[in-house]
């Protein structure tokens, strides 16, 4: 069980941001497009240069190497990339059940990457990420290319992962319906900074 603490995170041209996520909490992040939501996730995963303190549970990120940190703080980008031929080559064993949970057949792991639809890539990328067993999840519009049924499947899977592992989840979503459905709390990011967004 680990909470995510962010103090004075500075990146791009935004003012320093401070916020926190409790263990197992699912927080939705929204804001006008181009305001830096994806950059915020990248800064948290330490993929771009940034300042400030980020800690996960008892761990300060400076206490571990970049790769170890990114392994714990799993980032799912809006457009996941693949570099080998089939999904199976990109990840350790994934059970048929978890594939089925996302509405994918067991053979999906052997499909050619080039023939996958955007939605299939997105769901498989989530499984690839979860196979690392990260301690926190940063999800950048993970259901952007999915229909309602598959969106619900992804939501349920992430929910269950969070409650079983205690991982906090920061979820970027443009869909107001979805935010209402899944979020414990809402954060709003714009050029002036990040703030708690009350339910309306």
């Amino acid at each position: 069980m680990a909470d995510l603490q962010v103090r004075g995170l500075g990146f791009h041209n935004l003012p320093p941001l401070s916020f926190s996520l409790a263990a197992a909490e699912l927080v939705v992040l929204s804001g006008p497009s181009g305001c830096g939501k994806s950059l915020l996730l990248r800064a948290l995963a330490d993929l771009d240069q940034n300042q400030g303190e980020v800690s996960l549970g008892q761990w300060q990120r400076e206490q571990m190497s970049g790769p170890d940190w990114r392994r714990r703080l799993g980032l799912l980008p809006a457009e996941p990339h693949w570099w080998l031929n089939t999904p199976a080559e990109h990840m350790p064993e994934v059970s048929a059940e978890s594939l089925a949970e996302l509405g994918l057949p067991a053979e999906a792991l052997g499909w050619q990457i080039s023939r996958l639809s955007t939605g299939e890539r997105q769901r498989l990328a989530l499984l690839r990420l979860l196979a690392n067993r990260p301690d926190a999840l940063l999800l950048d519009e993970p259901t952007a290319n999915l229909d309602q049924a598959n969106s619900l499947r992804v939501e349920a899977l992430v929910r269950r992962y969070a409650s079983s592992t205690g991982a906090p989840v920061l979820w970027v979503s443009h869909d107001a319906e979805q935010r209402r459905r899944i979020a414990d709390r809402q954060l709003l990011l714009d050029h002036s900074g990040i703030q708690e967004q009350p339910w309306t």
């Binding site: 970049g66 790769p67 980032l75 457009e79 996941p80 570099w83 690839r128 690392n132």
Partner: peptide
Amino acid sequence: RAIIEAQLMLGAHYYQAIGQ
């Protein structure tokens, strides 16, 4: 770039991400 960073995101070391 996208492929290198995709591997970094999953916790790869730089020499794994740039190996190929």
